[in-house]
Design a protein around this nucleic acid. Structure first.
Lengths: 186, 186
DNA sequence: TTGCTTACTTACTAATAAGTAAGTAATATT
DNA sequence: AATATTACTTACTTATTAGTAAGTAAGCAA
């Protein structure tokens, strides 16, 4: 038997990434779990508490993944980084940045800050990976690594969005471009 | 004295691109224009009528811009294409794809179709520009032009989103990358 | 001058939203 | 055995939503 609090968080995350923060309600979660509306308020008094907790748990997941990859080669780290987006693609979801950044101004302040934290965390991690790979000759590129990290995160994020609209091969096409742009073959 | 219908469309577009489709209400528009809620229903019976009309007018604008650029060089066409995003950046807005694609499944069907139309229109136009520029030696790149168009649109779209979150130089950084990737200097 | 259309307002409905207060049954603590 | 805590439900409030029906004032058309 699953823990209700955890299930609320997972369904909430799914709803944010499939419908958006403003388009789901406590009633959606309640229906899915066959509990009452107020049960969710018991675990998360306000919607912003739920939203903030979901974002924090995503931050924790990235930190954990980062720790797991610590000893990997830069190439394998990059592969694991891109896997985050692969997983989203497989589930036909967008990433959290894609889901929330368009309406960041309408989010509770705590959520805005957490979203910033996620963006900075991902960009910094990717930048570290790129620098390491360049230093030890795994990757080959001329641009500075911050610009490159910006470009990679942007294009991954947006290809998930475009994929939802067009259902074409844009995600795979982008992934290929990324590998070519750092000159690793896989 | 302005035309109310046109003003509703313009404010509606602004609201979609700053707050999102589900986060604005007829009341928001009514307040801004100092008219009553029902006046908007007179011009646009349902919210989906308003949304669909806004998307159609954006399609018309792109078609018009395309026509205007007809005789330009490929380089100038590309500059005008990117100007669409420059304008968004200046106003601290995201583009319509960035605003609506994350929650496309929650939009009225007519709006979903119009959004697809916009995505296809932009990608096709950019692809044409890239092919023309490659053919006449204005641009130099090895990838196929469809992949390149995907990458450029994706990164422009996402850099507007990231810019809202981080307020850093990501948009300018991406723009520079695009120019370099087709090897034009400006 | 009578009637019709345009562009609204007034006043409303029904649905849904987030949120709360009070009660309850089961479990854990002392 | 008595008490407190956990995890809810029941029943509710208040606010906001999209949407509608009926009325009106101004302008034009026959």
């Amino acid at each position: 038997m699953r823990d209700t609090r955890t299930e609320i968080l997972e369904i909430g995350e799914m709803l944010i990434r499939t419908k958006g923060y403003h388009s789901f309600s406590y009633a959606d979660i309640a229906k899915t779990l066959s509990i009452k509306n107020a049960a969710i308020h018991y675990h998360f008094p306000g919607k912003s508490d739920l939203g903030t907790t979901i974002l924090q748990s995503l931050i924790n997941n990235v930190e954990l993944l980062k720790e797991t990859c610590k000893e990997y080669s830069a190439t394998d780290k990059l592969l694991r980084f891109i896997e985050i987006y692969d997983n989203s693609k497989m589930l036909d979801r967008v990433c959290i940045m894609g889901a929330l950044s368009p309406c960041i101004d309408t989010l509770p302040e705590q959520m805005q800050l957490k979203l910033k934290e996620i963006a900075e965390l991902l960009l910094k991690w990717l930048n570290d990976i790129l620098q390491e790979g360049k230093k030890n000759q795994e990757f080959h590129f001329n641009e500075n690594s911050i610009d490159k990290a910006n470009l990679i995160v942007s294009s991954l994020l947006a290809s998930l969005l475009l994929n939802k609209v067009l259902n074409n091969g844009v995600f795979e096409s982008i992934k290929q471009s990324i590998f070519e742009s750092v000159q690793i073959s896989k």
